[in-house]
Design a binder for these strands. Structure first.
Ligand SMILES: [Mn+2]
Ligand SMILES: [Mn+2]
Ligand SMILES: [Zn+2]
Ligand SMILES: [Zn+2]
Lengths: 157, 157
DNA sequence: TTGGTAATGGAAACCATTATCAATAAGGAG
DNA sequence: CTCCTTATTGATAATGGTTTCCATTACCAA
């Protein structure tokens, strides 16, 4: 499900320059790949996709760039328990684009959902307030994942 | 914070035998270590603790046993993002003992909390209901972690 | 166009976890 | 208690995702 939000090469370029980074061919290519999928790609997935177009881009650069993008807040990094990190371009600036995951423990399918985010955010606020008071802990982020069986795996066997 | 709930060597022995497994010295030792701490130990942590008493127990066995305990439902396995799995004995049988985590992104401190579990469970139920309907997804488990700064790290710098 | 330096990529290192396999020992039968 | 079956163990090697190294390349401000 390729998206066509307002972001693109020009925007990224500005963003990079604004942070004092250079916009390079590998970085551009990696962002292109990420922006053209709604799947949760591993570093190697990204590498293979980029490699089809730019044979010279190395896996090391993919790792480095993904880490940079995460650090810049453009990309989220997840661990779904399959032994490799998975990356996903954050759409929209700031908090829009934030979502949670349903993970099928049988086939590994990942489902993004945003439907109930509002209620979860409310819970988050309350929890944050309570925990801040009790543990003097300043919450800056959260991770919520549900595990179970997807429709395809639920029935058979 | 060593706990003294109703479980112990005898109980574990029955549990193992009930599953058709043998109760061995390494397994006993690993359970002892896990039951005497409230920290979230890595496999190597467990190995080192066990090694002090039983020099002959190998790291491989620690990994194998921890995996077995997870699979038996006696131990939870977590990923706090530091590149190694962390294990924790589940106290109480069944769902009691279930809790969530506050993770300090600066010093790595982990705080268990159960205070707001009830509200989260309520949210979970609602979410589960909604998601089941919309995505035909059967939720069996969930992971909720809050990231931020602990009281010690919040202030300085 | 050029120079300073950030960025790159191939290879090697790293490191948590897993696979191998011969030796060991738990525990049921007798 | 002893024997026997076989689950379990542990030293070692292998695996595989991620990082580190470092000489080379190429952004981009001047
Ligand atoms: Mn997602
Ligand atoms: Mn815990
Ligand atoms: Zn599935
Ligand atoms: Zn801290």
């Amino acid at each position: 499900m390729p998206h066509g939000n307002g972001m693109g090469p020009r925007w990224w370029h500005r963003r990079f320059r604004g942070c004092g980074y250079r916009m390079t061919v590998p970085r551009q290519a990696i962002l292109d790949v990420l922006s053209k999928t709604s799947r949760h790609l591993s570093a190697e997935d990204v590498f293979m996709a980029v490699h089809k177009v730019y044979h010279h881009v190395g896996l090391t650069t993919v790792y480095r760039t993904l880490e940079l993008l995460v650090q810049m807040g453009l990309v989220s990094k997840f661990d779904f328990g399959d032994g490799r990190a998975r990356y996903e371009l954050l759409e929209g600036s700031k908090d829009s684009g934030h979502h949670h995951h349903l993970i099928c423990t049988k086939c590994g399918r990942i489902i993004d959902y945003t439907d109930f985010i509002d209620e979860e955010i409310k819970l988050l606020k309350e929890t944050e307030k309570g925990l801040s008071k009790k543990y003097k802990f300043k919450i800056t982020n959260h991770l919520i994942q549900f595990y179970g069986l997807c429709d395809k795996c639920k029935d058979k066997r």
